[in-house]
């Protein structure tokens, strides 16, 4: 056997391996979709059926109806996503600029604090935060969920700082010689160049808000203020058991926007995750 055929064989094996893996990764999606289109009695068979005997599209409108305020939840979630994305992008860019493009005494020591706060998981601070928002009278409103995003989360600051550091210093210096202020440099030089990184931060924040469960769970009290994630969970855990076909239909509806967003912004997603890969 020549080395060329050996190589070809190796590549073929690799291909098969990847293909099998891909099928395994796709299966849960397929199962979710298949269940979401089954009639109730076909979801409950032992062993399970792979495919519905006939496709029951009706499950989708029914699931929306069962979840009560599905559209309201969607609106709430979109509102929160918009606010947190705006807040995060603005505040993180500012802070990251301050940590990367301006030399001030003690900067790097303070930056260690930024890194340190990345280590605090939300459950550790959630009780006092709840108390704080309670004092402010914000429980039951959206504020506890989006106001903090205007205060530059550590992870995003870190990410943007890494990016800002890669921009050549000469750019700022040239602008300074032209008489530009720090602020003008930020707006006119750095931000335009940082567009891909800003999009990444925006995407991450969007995902995080779309995903968030524990925050809404403790801050939102009024059912009509729920987010999709919370609404889905409330629907799943309501008394009297589980209608798997509706639940899967509802889940599909919650997943779809994220997947669609991904397909439109694929490039940034992959780039963004790549740059967060701890090259610091």
């Amino acid at each position: 056997m020549s080395s060329k055929t050996a190589q070809l064989l190796q590549r073929f094996c690799l291909y098969v391996l990847l293909l099998v893996g891909a099928v395994v990764f796709i299966l849960p999606f397929a199962w979710m979709l298949s269940t979401s289109l089954k009639p109730l009695n076909e979801t409950m068979t032992v062993p399970p059926r792979w495919l519905p005997s006939h496709i029951q599209w009706d499950n989708y409108p029914r699931a929306i109806e069962e979840m009560k305020m599905f559209w309201r939840y969607t609106g709430n979630t979109v509102y929160l996503c918009a606010m947190t994305v705006i807040g995060t992008v603005l505040s993180s860019a500012l802070a990251a600029y301050g940590f990367s493009r301006i030399e001030w005494r003690g900067r790097d020591k303070v930056f260690v604090l930024v890194l340190a706060t990345m280590m605090i998981p939300f459950p550790v601070v959630m009780v006092p935060l709840y108390t704080l928002f309670r004092e402010l009278g914000w429980i039951g409103s959206f504020k506890p969920l989006w106001v903090p995003s205007f205060m530059a989360g550590a992870f995003n600051v870190f990410l943007l700082r890494q990016f800002f550091l890669t921009l050549p210093k000469e750019l700022s210096e040239a602008a300074k010689i032209d008489g530009a202020s720090e602020w003008q440099i930020f707006c006119q030089v750095v931000l335009p160049l940082a567009k891909p990184a800003l999009i990444v931060v925006a995407l991450f924040q969007f995902m995080a808000t779309w995903n968030d469960f524990l925050g809404p769970l403790i801050y939102l009290t009024d059912q009509s203020d729920f987010t999709l994630a919370l609404g889905l969970q409330a629907y799943q855990s309501r008394e009297g058991g589980t209608d798997w076909h509706y639940l899967m239909a509802a889940s599909t509806l919650v997943v779809i926007p994220v997947v669609v967003l991904f397909f439109f912004t694929q490039r940034y997603f992959v780039e963004g995750i790549a740059t967060t890969g701890g090259k610091g």
Binding site: T117, M151, A152
Partner: peptide, 20 residues
Amino acid sequence: VGLIFISPWLAGFILMSLYP
């Protein structure tokens, strides 16, 4: 100027990390 730029983070650090 540096402190002005990092002020959002500073506020977050005090309110969302240190205080809790």
